[in-house]
Design a protein around this nucleic acid. Structure first.
Length: 468
RNA sequence: GGAGAGGUGGCAGAGCGGUUGAAUGCGUCAGACUUGAAAUCUGAUUAGGGUUUCGGCCCUACGGGAGUUCGAAUCUCCCCCUCUCCGCCA
């Protein structure tokens, strides 16, 4: 969520940002709603103050009068006092009605304003290249292990033609697609034998890599979360159709403590949701920043709108596992930029240790998504596809996500004074599998159809050197 | 699944119809004392928002929502959450 105050001060900046991202949002209307709400607020508050004053005066008088009423003997005095009470009661009541009327008007605006505000995208940073779509993304760097020549094809490099991972999986019994589909429908799979072991080896290696070499704190977080968590992390409302929804609200039942919940739950599409949700609504001590978290979690994606795309194999699936890194930092642009580079660096080191050719892709404005000020994708070379495939995505969000989550800290350290500040957040994939199995299987295949196990993974596969 | 208890400031914990944004303790910060520290004493210490002549002024919030009342942290209803006991169970 963007800062409404900044929007008021500089609407043009946000209009231009939305335009660059190709997001349609009526900012003029938002500003009008905001202005109207503030006008209502101002007059409401003035009336409420007056009402409060009056109540303080009238209250005790009422108490006194009702005491006198009890004691009053004759009918005449009684009626006199009752009249006074009635008129006293009428005074604040009239104001209260006015306040309520204004309240109602304000409440009528609120949902629309909030909904609109949530859809205003974070403007791209000035140094993000402008573009219309993925084709305008810019390759920023390319790396390959010794012996790999980008100028040559796979078979020229290796001396034999590449099989794609689907064939390799079938031949080596690493994955069973028909049975996956039988149980769970399209985009489902079963990993078997060494395929399952390789999958687990990747995840565990990546987790250890972040924990032991880069000082991240390993966490296990929920993958089944409430709507607020999805909205807070910025995946809703824009990506609502991508998430699986568990309709607990429709089950009813549930009395008291253990019973069913009245709220729907959602399966998360990335560990980022659970990690960022951890400190929702908290005011953190500045000394704990930056928080560096890593999780390995199962990710669920409906892949709505991707019908017919990448239907075969392990590339685009509904359920996968991912090691994800997240950093929650001080509100400082320069610091955010440094962490962004760091987080990309960790992944580069990981991929280099795996010997996988990759490139960094500077995403253009149109490809950033609503949350990001900047995003760098990392793509691994996938010989079976004959092209790069996205395996990582490193996002820099400034305070966009933390504002939604109401995640703050108090600058100035030492118990702190002064106003709170909203944290900055960043995230990046560490390893998503089975997708990362694709470049591994395809790059490590040998002429005889077997697959070498990357050296760094062998310890995680019981010392196995070769599959098949 | 059954039965009960409870959700108050950074934490613990009072308040149970008005002057309580909230006692008290702990923590934290500032000052005093001290060579320094500890101990002690004094003071400060919720957040969000509106408005501002930038000195302030004001509104909102005691899990969330609705209600009763002239007035609600306090009473009623619904929801969410936590805990205890029994049952079941990876």
């Amino acid at each position: 969520m963007i800062d409404l105050k900044l929007l008021r001060e500089n609407p043009a900046h946000f209009k231009e940002g939305a335009r660059l991202k190709g997001v349609a949002v009526d900012i003029e209307h938002l500003l009008a709603l905001d202005a109207r709400r503030r006008a209502l607020q101002t007059s409401r508050q003035a009336l409420a103050a007056e009402q409060g004053q009056l109540e303080k005066v009238v209250g005790p008088q009422l108490g006194k009068l009702s005491g006198e009423l009890k004691k009053a003997a004759d009918e005449g005095a009684r009626r006199e006092i009752e009249g006074q009470i009635a008129s006293l009661r009428g005074q604040p009541a009239a104001l209260k009605a006015q306040v309520q009327a204004l309240d109602e008007q304000e409440r009528a605006i609120e949902p629309e304003l909030t909904a609109l505000l949530l859809t205003v995208p974070q403007p791209p940073d000035a140094d993000v290249p402008r573009g219309e779509g993925p084709s305008d993304n810019i390759e920023a760097k390319r790396w390959a292990p010794a012996g790999w020549d980008w100028g040559k094809s796979f078979s020229e490099n290796k001396g034999f033609p590449a099989q794609n991972h689907i064939d390799l999986c079938a031949r080596l019994g690493l994955a069973d697609f028909p049975r996956g589909v039988k149980m769970s429908g399209t985009r489902s799979y079963v990993l078997a034998g060494d395929g399952m072991l390789l999958h687990q080896a990747i995840l565990r290696y990546a987790l250890d890599f972040m924990v032991h070499r880069n000082g991240f704190k390993p966490m296990s977080v929920p993958v089944l979360v409430r709507e607020e968590c999805m909205v807070g992390t910025g995946f809703f409302p824009a990506g609502r159709e991508q998430a699986y929804q568990i309709e607990e609200s429709k089950r009813g039942g549930g009395s008291g403590s253990t019973g069913g919940s009245g709220h729907d739950l959602f399966l998360t599409g990335t560990g980022e949701v659970g990690l960022m949700g951890l400190h929702e609504g908290e005011i953190l001590d500045e000394s704990v920043l930056p928080l560096k978290y890593v999780t390995v979690s199962t990710c669920f994606r409906r892949e709505a709108g991707a019908a017919g795309k990448d239907t075969a194999g392990l590339y685009r699936v509904h359920v996968f596992d991912k090691v994800e890194q997240v950093i929650i930092a001080r509100a400082d642009e320069a610091e955010s930029r440094v962490w962004h580079r760091e987080m990309i660096g960790y992944v580069e080191a990981l991929l280099q240790s795996l010997g996988l050719p990759y490139r960094l892709l500077q995403c253009c404005t149109a490809d950033l998504g609503v949350k990001n000020a900047d995003m760098i994708d990392i793509e691994c070379w996938m010989p079976g596809r004959g092209e790069f495939g996205e395996t990582h995505s490193a996002s820099r969000l400034y305070d966009y996500q933390c504002r939604r989550l109401n995640m703050r800290y108090r600058p100035g350290g030492e118990g702190g004074k002064g106003p709170t500040a909203i944290c900055h957040s960043l995230n990046n994939t560490v390893a998503a599998s089975p997708r990362l199995m694709i470049p591994i299987l395809e790059m490590y295949q040998q002429a005889d159809g077997t697959v070498k196990v990357p050296e760094v993974l062998r310890a995680y596969m019981g010392g196995k050197v070769q599959i098949g």
